[in-house]
Computed example of a mutant assay.
Amino acid sequence: MYSSDELTGIAENCKNFMNEITKDKPERDLAVLEEIVVKTSLFEYMFWDMAEKKEEWPINLQES
């Protein structure tokens, strides 16, 4: 699925869209956006890593 032409096309469209909306943005705005992308990528990695290791969410919801 992740190597399908359809998903590759979606990824390309997303990259093109990001390039379009960030064109001519000041460096400080780009730095903020970069931080957001890096942080969300880390969360995505952590999610899949937890799934592979069959870990549970580290928060006890019954204490909340």
Rank of each mutant, 00 (worst) to 15 (best):
N13A: 13
K39N: 09
W57H: 12
S64G: 10
G9F: 03
F47A: 05
K53A: 14
P26I: 02
I21R: 01
T22S: 11
V37S: 05
I21S: 01
S41T: 02
E63K: 07
M18T: 03
L7Y: 12
M50C: 10
F43N: 09
L33G: 04
I36P: 00
E6A: 11
L42I: 00
E35A: 10
K25N: 11
Y45W: 12
E20Y: 04
E56I: 01
T8L: 07
F17P: 00
A51F: 13
N16F: 05
L33D: 01
D49E: 10
T22G: 02
W57G: 02
T40L: 10
C14P: 00
Q62A: 08
P58S: 09
E63G: 06
Y2G: 08
V38M: 07
F47W: 14
M1R: 15
L42K: 06
I36L: 08
E52I: 02
P58K: 15
E56G: 07
E20N: 04
L61S: 11
V32Q: 13
S3A: 09
D49H: 14
P26K: 04
E44F: 15
M46N: 10
E27H: 05
L30Y: 11
L30R: 06
M1W: 15
E34Q: 13
K39W: 13
K54N: 10
L33A: 05
Y2F: 08
Y45A: 03
T40H: 15
F17K: 02
M1K: 15
L61G: 06
I21T: 02
E20R: 05
D5S: 11
V37R: 09
Y45S: 05
P58F: 08
S3C: 03
M1E: 11
E52L: 13
D29W: 09
R28H: 10
M1S: 15
E35C: 04
W57R: 05
N16C: 03
A51C: 09
S64Y: 12
E34K: 07
K15S: 04
I36Y: 15
F43D: 08
F17E: 00
I21G: 00
L30N: 06
E44V: 03
E56D: 11
K54P: 01
E35I: 01
E63H: 11
L30F: 06
L30A: 06
F47C: 05
K23C: 03
F47K: 08
